[in-house]
Design a protein around this nucleic acid. Structure first.
Lengths: 343, 343
DNA sequence: TTGTACGCGTTATCAG
DNA sequence: CTGATAACGCGTACAA
């Protein structure tokens, strides 16, 4: 080779259109081979101290950063990427879950790719396809419910999946849930033991597993007292606070209205709260709500909250994923985060 | 070559330890070359329809997903990755900003890498180094304040940067701010024009640009009425609600306490609110707070909020970045999101 | 301890 | 319209 061409470009340094220096640039600058640079980058084992510091100086001088994408295409190299699909990032509850995931992922220097599914299972599928293409090591998903084809082993390949907050029937994955049944049971018992016999139930759409599980706790508490919930007082399907407010108003307008209210998530709690404050019943109907929210203690209403640590739920999800990366063949686990009754 | 070794592995299909099919697998399965597969993947131009559908069938059959990382190492290929560093993901305000960024990024099929800096400039620097190594196309940062070396052109190379919510002196970047000065001015004028002359100011640490700008609006409103804020009533440096509560309590304990309160962000508002409710002054001190929060309308206190659309701020930041990707040499822009006074 | 050769999965180039 | 070849930036295997 060495065709003595138009030797005018100096050391023939070709920048990859990007301009970023490569291992070869660093090697040339330090007067070593690219392999020595590579070794320095991956821990500096078996490199003469003098060369090592020369390479480090060159890295500094050129502002070199290793290209993690190029690195990751080599067999046996990990991307350090976790894909996270969440139904609604802007819901403070899920933001807290996300923070927990980020925290644990960051501990092993992994980064999270975040997508908002907007409670839309098709969008969720699209996100997961994209994450897979980007070679994420694992997925954490708060499933939107509905179709689950994109969560199956076939669709996502060997990439491990952890479901957070909600489970999905038929999907093989590790799962972190809230202790929904126990929490709902405890909250409901409070109302029953205060003498209430007509308790309204407001909840999410039944395709979301938490809605069903929390109703189960509600029903269970009734059963333990030899009672059955009145179907006329059960409203499921409110996905936002506005719908919950409407549903609550309708319940208050019944010929035989409830004397207390159980809401199974924070949006339903907030919606119900607005309706109840609007009506200003005297005495006010006691409200027990699942999931805490900011300032719940400052709201001028008799409120009991079934609380849990959302950030810890996120952390647990990420920890399950980390464990799964180490041992891909362990049997799937389902963990539950405990609840506390406040107020 | 072709050493007839232990020929027992069949068609010698070596899976890259990962097991995922490659273009070559698809090509073999469809009986074409890998280039034809590649062409089909990138828009199917100049490919005979018959081959095209055969390739598509193979892609489907094998469950092939293009390896975006391998793709991105080729010159001229983009990663479709945006790095986002936020001071506190779990603050509902920034969660909303994040959602806006995700929304706009997703419109061009880009994904966001998210890191939480925890108001720590060193952690922020670390995140940005990582993002650069992952070949992000651009960065959106809510800067923690303090040292800004990692945000300079030198440290991040040619990668464009947009600062969201807060500016950083000496950093060349596009910026999206809230109209802090005008908002704070308008809120303060409300109190002044209601006759208040001793107005407390609670704000963030001064190294965060919004704290300074909002104080400037506060001062400006006073100046316009021929007044000067009383330094004894100004408390800057509260980074969370607990600190704000303490600061507010101290102000109430002054020999000459304030008769009204201006808080320059939502954590200070919430902290002040707790202190004020605790004291139950009669009549209550009117409170004007910058940034809205959930249920602010249900709090039993005379509260005025200087509101703005956080999600729109996030969208704007992402749009600025997208524009910058198209035209890297345009002069930097600073945009402001308008505020509204509620209550 | 250091360097050379090659391959990872993809696509631009150019020949057919 | 299709395919062979090379190269992107990096790291493993092996040679020196």
């Amino acid at each position: 080779m060495l065709e003595e061409g138009p030797a005018k470009a100096g050391p023939a340094v070709r920048r990859p259109a990007n301009g970023a220096p490569t291992v070869h640039d660093v090697a040339r600058h330090a007067g070593v081979s690219s392999m020595t640079v590579s070794r320095v980058l991956s821990g500096a084992v078996h490199v003469r101290p003098e060369l090592r510091s020369r390479v480090e100086a060159s890295i500094e001088a050129l502002g070199y950063r290793r290209n993690e994408n190029a690195r990751s295409i080599r067999p046996g190299q990990r991307t350090g990427l976790i894909g996270v699909a969440i139904t609604n990032i802007a819901n403070p509850y899920y933001a807290e879950v996300l923070l927990g995931i980020e925290e644990v992922a960051g501990q092993s220097d992994r980064r999270i790719l975040v997508g908002n599914s907007g409670e839309d299972s098709a969008r969720e599928a699209q996100l997961i396809r994209d994450f897979v293409g980007r070679q994420v090591e694992g997925l954490v998903v708060v499933p939107a419910g509905g179709d689950a084809a994109h969560l199956t082993r076939a669709a996502r390949g060997p990439i491990p999946l952890v479901l957070a907050s909600r489970s999905m029937p038929g999907v093989e994955a590790d799962v972190v849930l809230v202790d929904d049944v126990a929490g709902a049971r405890a909250g409901t018992l409070r109302l029953l033991d205060a003498g209430h016999r007509r308790i309204a139930f407001l909840g999410n759409i039944p395709s979301v597993s938490t809605a069903v599980r929390r109703y189960e706790g509600f029903r269970l508490a009734h059963a333990e007292r030899g009672l059955t919930p009145d179907d006329a007082l059960v409203r499921m399907g409110q996905q936002d606070a506005a719908a919950a407010r409407t549903a609550m108003t309708e319940l208050l307008d019944l010929a035989q209205p409830p004397t207390a209210v159980f809401t199974s998530n924070n949006r339903n709690t907030i919606g119900a709260l607005r309706a109840l404050l609007e009506r200003a019943a005297d005495p006010p109907l006691p409200l027990v709500g699942f999931d805490n929210f900011d300032l719940s203690d400052l709201v001028p209403y008799p409120l009991t909250i079934i609380d849990h640590d959302a950030r810890e739920l996120g952390r647990t999800a990420a920890r399950l994923l980390m464990a799964r990366l180490v041992d891909p063949d362990a049997p799937p686990r389902t963990l539950a985060v405990p609840t506390t009754v406040l107020g």
